[in-house]
């Protein structure tokens, strides 16, 4: 299977590559439009700050490429947030794939949320074999609001969308590559979509 990880200079991509390696797949980093278009599956990672990440995407033209991809695309963490309409982080517009905005947690809770939280209200093939209230590893200060495209929700300060799906696009706020066996199952599921 031809798996490409979108490389636009954001974040710790190695962990994702290693996670696929543990599953027996070779996932290649690429910033090349043709190679990304030709892939069977595309992973859109991201750790860091939203507005500077958007800037990098625009510089490389990936901002127009990604929303037009036809194969399954999985955004992880900031990758998922960038697929939304708008983020409060650096007050930037996103790729507008998911019709939802990204906001900052208030200071009523510790920010960032760091650690293992549960995912609930699961509704997607992405979560085949995953039980309600399964634990996932999350590190984030911004969250996607509850919306129709939510396929998983988590509770931190309020219920928010911890995974999203629209057509061939999937996004997860948590890090499946760092979420033990359950996380690896989600990556496996994605490869089967």
């Amino acid at each position: 299977m031809n798996i490409k990880i979108v490389n636009y200079g954001a974040g710790n991509i190695k962990s994702i590559q290693f996670a696929f390696q543990r599953l027996g797949y070779n996932a290649e980093l690429s910033s090349d439009s043709d190679k990304i278009i030709a892939a069977d599956k595309v992973i859109f990672p991201g750790v860091g700050e939203a507005s500077s990440a958007m800037k990098k995407l625009k510089e490389s033209g990936l901002d127009t490429l990604i929303p037009n991809l036809k194969q399954p695309v999985l955004g992880i963490c900031l990758g998922m947030q960038l697929m939304c309409n708008h983020s409060e982080e650096g007050n930037t517009n996103g790729l507008g794939i998911f019709n939802v905005n990204v906001k900052r947690f208030s200071n009523k809770v510790k920010v960032p949320q760091m650690g293992w939280n549960t995912i609930s209200n699961l509704k997607s093939d992405l979560f085949k074999g995953i039980q309600e209230e399964e634990y996932m590893y999350l590190v984030h200060s911004y969250y996607a609001e509850m919306c129709d495209e939510a396929i998983a929700t988590s509770l931190y300060e309020m219920n928010y969308a911890s995974a999203l799906e629209k057509d061939n696009f999937f996004g997860v706020q948590f890090h499946p590559e760092k979420s033990s066996k359950a996380g690896e199952q989600i990556l496996k599921n994605f490869l089967k979509i």
Binding site: K14, S15, F18, A19, Q21, R22, Y137, V139, H175, E177, K178, S179, S180, K181, G183, E184
Partner: peptide, 8 residues
């Protein structure tokens, strides 16, 4: 460790 361990 990164290669083989699936927690942070």
């Amino acid at each position: 460790v990164a290669e083989q361990v699936n927690i942070p």
